[in-house]
Every structure is written in structure tokens, then in C-alpha cells.
């Protein structure tokens, strides 16, 4: 006998009252941040928002669909430069944002085409080449300001009656929340299921009626859309864009963010984006830690070149990734789930 259940329970955004309450508390906290912290911290949160948005999209491609992209900085660049040009031309911010996302999305769909034939390392090379090409092409074109880049005018935020920084913060937060809900819906809908099906077995996916061409292209397009939105916000955040920002290193860091957060999970992308931003800002300070910092400086002076200490961020990021892959394959999301389980059982 089947117990009649309300299946909507399983697809709603908040499955339990507790999760709704916690989310509301978290939103309240986000709302209060500008009243508690200095402006500097607002920009840290803004940076987190950017990384979260790009990670959400990349995770759909890598974690859910099982494809790879080593060129995601290319999509971010396309979003950022589209936004820069449109904002300079005086196009309102809302339209700029959407168009930046769509332009990147379109390019993503095109880049998705080779993914129909290529797998694993071959696809990695194609996307790698794409990322590098975008950087080079933008750097060569006068229209994009060449290597000097483009300035981005401040957008009009006077309507809010708050300071520019605070309003910008709220704008970033709201867009990030919307993008998070979008990613959640994609993953839990028929579209996300089709992505995951392709990841697990493309043969089985095609015999269950999933059009591989359609869905692989869609996955690239969706992922690029997120990166394009992230790029537009990036332009707004930095107030100027140069091709050098969107380097291979950026693409690699996005992949690292997704792996750190947890492949295929929205919570993972959010946690990964937040933690990776903090790591990037804080890891350089590791040289100021007593003893350990001295040891690193010493090692750097003896085995790396003297300027190698600047790269310590990358070295430590790499180390953290290796540890994650070895000991916590589900990333921060895995740790998060375990904490939740623990608290569910607490205090028994």
C-alpha cells in the first residue's frame, strides 16, 4: 500500500520550516551587513557574490553535466566587456546586465558545439584555447581599449536614497539570490535531470529520449549565461576592465572553487564562492604567521625564485584542493551536510 504523499513537498524551495527560518535569518543578516560593517567588507561580500554566480554556472556544466571548461574566464570577460561598452553608451543597468548574460550565453552555445564530439582532455584543450583567445582578441582590439582596458561609469543608484556603496551591495545581493534560485530550479527540474543523466551515461540518456545535442549545448549556454552576468557585475565592481584580469588563472580558480565547494551542488557553489574569495584575500597573509610564515619565506628563497613568494597563494590553493579531493570529495557541501546531520541528531 502506498502512503499518499504530497509530492510538491519534494520540489518546493524550502522543504522544512526550519530551513525557511534559517534562510530568513541569513537574509536578515545580509540585510544588516551595511549597518554593522565597514565599507571595505561590503566590497568583500560583492566579490563573493561575483564568484558565487560564476561558480553556480560552472558547477552546472562541470558538476551536473560532466563537461569541462578551462576557459570560463573567457565568458566572464565577454560579460564584463559587453557591460562596459553598454554602460559607456548609457544603456540602463538592468538591460546591460541581461544583454551581457545573453551575449555570453550565445557564445557559450557555440562553444558547446565541439562538446558534442569531444570528451575529457580534448574538450579541456578546446575550452582552454577559447579562454586564451578571448583574452588575446580583446587585448588587440581598439574598440575594447586594447591592453589599457575600459573605464566603466558608475551606474545611477540615487533612487535608493542610500550611499552608492550600500546600494551596490544590495544590488549584488539581490542578483546573487535570484541567480541561486535559478540554479536551484535548473538542477531540480527536468532540465537538470537531463544534464545529470548525460553525466552518468550518455548512451542511457539518449535511449530515454534525451536529445544530446540540445542538452549539451544548453548546458554550455546556461553556464556561460551565469558567467556573463558575473562578468557584468565584475565590470561594475572593478570600475575598469583589462584583458589581463580574465587570465587562465582565473578559469582555473573557478574550477577550483567548484571542486572545493562540492561538484553538482548549489550549496557547494555558494560555499565554494564564499570560501575561495576569503582564501584569495587572506592567503597572502600566511607569511605573517609566526614560524610557519618564516618557513615558507625560507623555502621560497631557497627553492623557488626570490619573487616566488607572490605565488604562495596559488601553491596553498593547490594544496587545499589536493586535500579536498583526497579527504572530502563532496567538498564543503559534504562537510555542510555532515554538520546538518549532526545537529539534527543533537543532543542525543
Amino acid at each position: 500500500m502506498r502512503l499518499k504523499r504530497v509530492y510538491f513537498e519534494d520540489i518546493r524551495l524550502f522543504k522544512t520550516t526550519a530551513s525557511l527560518v534559517w534562510t530568513l535569518l541569513f537574509l536578515l543578516l545580509l540585510f544588516l551587513v551595511p549597518f554593522i560593517f565597514k565599507t571595505y567588507y561590503l566590497s568583500v561580500v560583492n566579490l563573493m557574490c561575483l564568484n558565487v554566480i560564476v561558480a553556480l554556472g560552472l558547477n552546472i556544466l562541470v558538476g551536473n553535466t560532466g563537461q569541462i571548461s578551462l576557459g570560463h574566464a573567457g565568458f566572464v570577460a565577454i560579460g564584463a566587456y559587453t557591460a562596459a561598452i553598454l554602460l559607456q553608451a548609457g544603456v540602463p543597468f538592468v538591460f546591460t546586465l541581461i544583454i551581457a548574460g545573453l551575449v555570453s550565453c550565445l557564445v557559450g552555445a557555440f562553444l558547446g558545439l565541439p562538446s558534442l564530439r569531444l570528451e575529457g582532455p580534448y574538450l579541456a584543450i578546446v575550452t582552454l584555447g577559447f579562454g586564451l583567445a578571448v583574452m588575446v582578441i580583446i587585448g588587440r582590439m581598439e574598440m575594447f581599449g586594447g591592453r589599457m582596458g575600459l573605464m566603466i561609469p558608475r551606474i545611477d543608484l540615487n533612487w535608493s536614497g542610500l550611499s552608492y556603496d550600500r546600494t551596490l551591495y544590495y544590488v549584488f545581493i539581490i542578483i546573487t539570490i535570484l541567480m541561486t534560485i535559478l540554479a536551484h530550479n535548473i538542477i531540480h527540474s527536468k532540465i537538470g535531470r537531463a544534464f545529470q543523466a548525460i553525466r552518468d551515461s550518455d548512451i542511457a540518456a539518449s535511449v530515454t529520449g534525451i536529445n544530446l545535442v540540445h542538452y549539451k549545448t544548453l548546458s554550455f549556454a546556461v553556464s556561460a549565461f551565469f558567467a556573463g552576468i558575473g562578468g557584468a557585475l565584475w565590470a561594475l565592481y572593478l570600475q575598469f576592465v583589462t584583458p589581463g584580469t580574465f587570465s587562465l588563472m582565473m578559469s582555473v580558480l573557478f574550477l577550483a572553487t567548484v571542486v572545493l565547494g562540492g561538484l553538482g551542488s548549489v550549496t557547494g557553489s555558494v560555499l565554494g564562492g564564499i570560501v575561495m574569495t576569503l582564501l584569495n584575500l587572506q592567503l597572502e597573509k600566511v607569511v605573517t604567521v609566526p614560524l610557519f610564515g618564516d618557513l615558507i619565506v625560507f623555502l621560497s628563497d631557497t627553492i623557488m625564485n626570490p619573487s616566488g613568494i607572490a605565488n604562495i597563494r596559488w601553491v596553498l590553493t593547490g594544496l587545499i584542493l589536493i586535500l579536498i579531493i583526497l579527504y572530502e570529495p563532496h567538498g564543503l557541501n559534504g562537510i555542510w551536510l555532515r554538520i546538518k546531520r549532526y545537529w539534527n541528531l543533537w543532543p542525543f
Binding site: 535531470r193 537531463a194 545529470q196 543523466a197 553525466r199 552518468d200 551515461s201 548512451i203 542511457a204 540518456a205
Partner: peptide
């Protein structure tokens, strides 16, 4: 040929794709 990392229910829902 299963969607091995997905649950039984998700596999069946893919049958409904």
C-alpha cells in the same frame, strides 16, 4: 546502463523525460 549516481526515483523520472 543506469544513471548510477542518481537515485532510483530520479532514474525513473528520467524515463518520464
Amino acid at each position: 546502463e543506469l544513471f548510477s549516481r542518481m537515485t532510483t526515483l530520479q532514474n525513473l523520472l528520467l524515463g518520464r523525460h
